[in-house]
Nucleic acid binder design. Sequence first.
DNA 1: GTATAATCGAGACGGTACGTCAAGTCTTATC
DNA 2: GATAAGACTTGACGTACCGTCTCGATTATAC
Lengths: 209, 209, 209, 209
Amino acid sequence: MSLKKSAQPAPDSTRRSERSRRAIYDAALALVAEVGYPRTTIEGIAARAGVGKQTIYRWWSSKADVLLEAFLDLSEQASRDAGPEYEFAIPDTGDLAADLKAVLRLTVDQLRDPRFEGPSRALAAEGVVDEQLGRIAVAKLLEPSLQMYADRVRSAQEAGQVRPDVDPRIALELWVSPLAQRWLQYTGPISYEYTDTLVDYALYGLAPR
Amino acid sequence: MSLKKSAQPAPDSTRRSERSRRAIYDAALALVAEVGYPRTTIEGIAARAGVGKQTIYRWWSSKADVLLEAFLDLSEQASRDAGPEYEFAIPDTGDLAADLKAVLRLTVDQLRDPRFEGPSRALAAEGVVDEQLGRIAVAKLLEPSLQMYADRVRSAQEAGQVRPDVDPRIALELWVSPLAQRWLQYTGPISYEYTDTLVDYALYGLAPR
Amino acid sequence: MSLKKSAQPAPDSTRRSERSRRAIYDAALALVAEVGYPRTTIEGIAARAGVGKQTIYRWWSSKADVLLEAFLDLSEQASRDAGPEYEFAIPDTGDLAADLKAVLRLTVDQLRDPRFEGPSRALAAEGVVDEQLGRIAVAKLLEPSLQMYADRVRSAQEAGQVRPDVDPRIALELWVSPLAQRWLQYTGPISYEYTDTLVDYALYGLAPR
Amino acid sequence: MSLKKSAQPAPDSTRRSERSRRAIYDAALALVAEVGYPRTTIEGIAARAGVGKQTIYRWWSSKADVLLEAFLDLSEQASRDAGPEYEFAIPDTGDLAADLKAVLRLTVDQLRDPRFEGPSRALAAEGVVDEQLGRIAVAKLLEPSLQMYADRVRSAQEAGQVRPDVDPRIALELWVSPLAQRWLQYTGPISYEYTDTLVDYALYGLAPR
DNA sequence: GTATAATCGAGACGGTACGTCAAGTCTTATC
DNA sequence: GATAAGACTTGACGTACCGTCTCGATTATAC
């Protein structure tokens, strides 16, 4: 899970302090939210968590690594809180467009949640420049959602609502990527109307029918 | 053009050393290419450029700012080298799909050019986290291309190849954003085949016709 | 007068700006008085004097050199103001002890004049470490007074009040140096009573008579 | 002992590295001897001592403070080397003049020892301008000697060789200060003959007997 | 009474050192 | 053996001045 490239003899994780781990996650997320990622320091996290610096270096390899796990932990918590049935499921009412629009509206809400924004941007930025981290972050955080979109597209193919030769992994990018880019690069405003439009364009194309 | 938030009395730009400016651009781009953005330092740039640190701080506000201008300069140079006629023009053969596919293949080539990759990623990453820088970088570097796509879509609308109610600024995101996301976040491989597919999906939609 | 070790072709002093010279002296003395010698900078003097840095470097070799001349100028002004007859003359009433005590009391007053204290200490400190400057400062500033003490001792020798084998140049150190050391090194308080005592001890010795 | 004005939480001196302390003293003294005080820098000391700059800033407040302690340490070492019986004792043979002359000749030798000259001048100069440092340096370095002179004078008073109304603390300045001034300000040459003369003048006075 | 050349104010430049911050390593004492 | 604490070396930060240099603009003699 961690990026740790174990140089020293691997520490004995059975003796690990759960208290410290929690405190470090909390401190890291709080600091990123308060002062931003670049001004968040390992020393700062350690001090705020009431933890020795070595305890951080023992279990994580970098600031980004700490944050990645802290963020994963936060996501898992959020999922558990939301209840197991609801979580991450794309509804299948038979109407693909409606189902996609509904889920994308939830995503829009999440992107605006300030609790997520700071750490998410930090991780995304780090991932752009650090390929290893980027791939892990995508796999852990983004992949589950993408998989569900792909599944929903496949189900629509079976229902005859999507052409059978369409690659679902590419199809989903028609709405996921534009939203992602507007959020990452400030290329445009994000709204329900916007995501609704994306779904319509994606499903029915730009060309006249 | 610079992000410089003039605190001190603005320096007299008529007396600026062109020699230093060039040397700083070259050093910055070389270092980012060689050791990566995070390990590129202002001190390193200054040393390599044979320049005092103050000369950098006098004219730029941050490492990212230096790199942004260096990269802009590089792009302008590249444009000038390429000749004024070809540059940044999307062909209009009457066949929108073919025209888009052709241009996107050039973009794929450029994304793989190692001369551009380092600085581009660095800027993109910084822009994710620093909204001001992000907006400027997008405006300077991305916007011209986006504008041309929008223009080409509009021309296709007039030719009846694209529905008149389609918003060109959103339409173009159907192929630009997926490519951008795969490049930024390593969410998938980039190839001519991939961009061709994007154009097809975007124009004709996922739904059966 | 200056310490300038002329490297470049000597500047033409006939065309020198008297206005600038005065402004530099004033600025230098004011700055030393206000922020102390170490925090006084050439740039600061130039800015305060409304003068280009080069104008300072053209005519002086160092901060200490500027200050030395500024201080000499100040001394000369003070002398001129005091009137030519009074200045630096040790009275000769026939009573050596009384005459020395009187002059030393004036010296005590001067050592306490804050206008002189800052620059004097600065020069003295610099002179301790920079032998060349030290010798010049002593020659310009201290020597005239020492010479007058020596003359007065000689006159006392002729009057039979001082043993003929006494070296006047050493004799005067018996009161000048203790006062100087207390002032320079804070080895003790300075008062009229103290200087009076010094004169008595020097003239009549420590041993019983 | 240090001038450190504890701003940050005081560091834990029990965990201080003795190795670093020694290396810093050695480097500081060596640099002052080699290039002089003004060209000795904190960075230079740190580099030469193989020590981080912060380790210096953690324990000392300034270059002068480092040097003061380094010099004190050197003096203590020298004392220990010289053996406890000899050190700093003014002989009491019953002949005050002879005893003083003997000790002053040793002082003359020491003033010429190049190992001491550089750091001593540096400290003295700094002390002229920085009263706090000056007082500490005098108390630590000069005071012990002065005290011994005072004691010897008192003993001579008991033996009837010095008038009982003489203040020993002022008396000793008659030979200490002239020597100090010649050394500090280059006001004259220093020799055995000179110090012998000072003692004679001081004891028997300038006036005929 | 101009020509003309040096000085002048200004300030950009390549540098050095400053004092601070944080990184990652190491040591000590505690639990 | 993991931990909290924090001293250590390292290296970059952004700032302040150094002394040199190039600019017009301004004198102030010498033509």
